[in-house]
Nucleic acid binder design. Structure first.
Lengths: 150, 150
DNA sequence: ACACTTTTTGCCACTTTGATACACAAAAAA
DNA sequence: TTTTTTGTGTATCAAAGTGGCAAAAAGTGT
């Protein structure tokens, strides 16, 4: 399970270093084989290859009659790019992926269980600030969450 | 169960010493393995690892179609960082965590049952002062609390 | 009040990690 | 082919994290 947030800096050619603490787990899980794609929320998703295969399978066996499904398939599968963690621990993000997520010099790599999310740093800070405000302002939580005991 | 409040000082590298009185309990509960994450209220939450695992499990099995759920997952799991109490009894707080809670030189470590909260000292003092004022001003408590016998 | 123990804190040196710059290779465009 | 763009590997330097020690402070008991 991946968790935790790290600031990453993206070099002129679009590479970033995978934080050291995740490298051994990634080595084990997928022999450094990743798939990176886009999320409807302006960020990128980074999966270990085996986990991606499950996702892709789920998506492509949905039938494609619904507009929503076709749209998701086009986005998610369309942008999905195979990547490998280099011997120096770096990952290359293609130009289209960087463009989609508005990634420039600095990003945030956010562990989310079975996958990572990659956000532009500014976008992330603005969003989390909004979320925090929203959570604080709320008198009552969404019903599905009221039983949660943090 | 953790209780009590302690002033902690955070060194230049972001470390603080766990107060001695908690060390044996933490040793027993989690072999010094902690997970620290953020709370929507500008503070950090520090869990013994086994307790964290329960929380994470609850959160990540919620499905991620609802915006509220995704938001919480991103915040709570996204910031969650594994930490270990060093042989000298110190804990390292990563830069993103310190940034989120506005932690600088001194903080407050507040026992809250199954977890600790970590506040920036100034923020804490200001907040508790506000709360005190608010409680005093109030004629009656929220209905859900009337049965409580302090 | 004194001596002694425990805890806290600040400091230093060392190691690991990450950023930058540069040279080179491959592929695409001209 | 030549030129340009895009990606890759490597070396060097800076920053961040780690561990350990020791002085200072706080706490304890006599």
């Amino acid at each position: 399970m991946f968790r935790g947030i790290s600031k990453i800096s993206i070099d002129a050619k679009g590479r970033f270093a995978v934080p050291a603490k995740y490298r051994s787990e990634l080595q084990d899980k997928c022999a450094n084989q990743l798939v990176i794609t886009v999320d409807p929320d302006q960020c990128l998703l980074m999966y270990p290859k085996p986990r991606w295969d499950e996702i892709e399978n789920q998506l492509m066996t949905q039938g494609n009659l619904s507009k929503d499904v076709r749209r998701l398939q086009r986005l998610i599968v369309g942008y999905a790019t195979d990547c490998e963690i280099s011997s120096q621990g770096k990952v290359q993000l293609s130009q289209p992926l960087r463009d989609y997520a508005g990634l420039d010099k600095t990003g945030m790599l956010v562990g989310q269980g079975q996958r990572f999310e990659i956000w532009d740093a500014d976008t992330w800070l603005k969003l989390t600030d909004d979320w925090r405000r929203a959570e604080q302002a709320k008198e009552s939580l969404n019903e599905s969450l009221v039983d949660l005991q943090l």
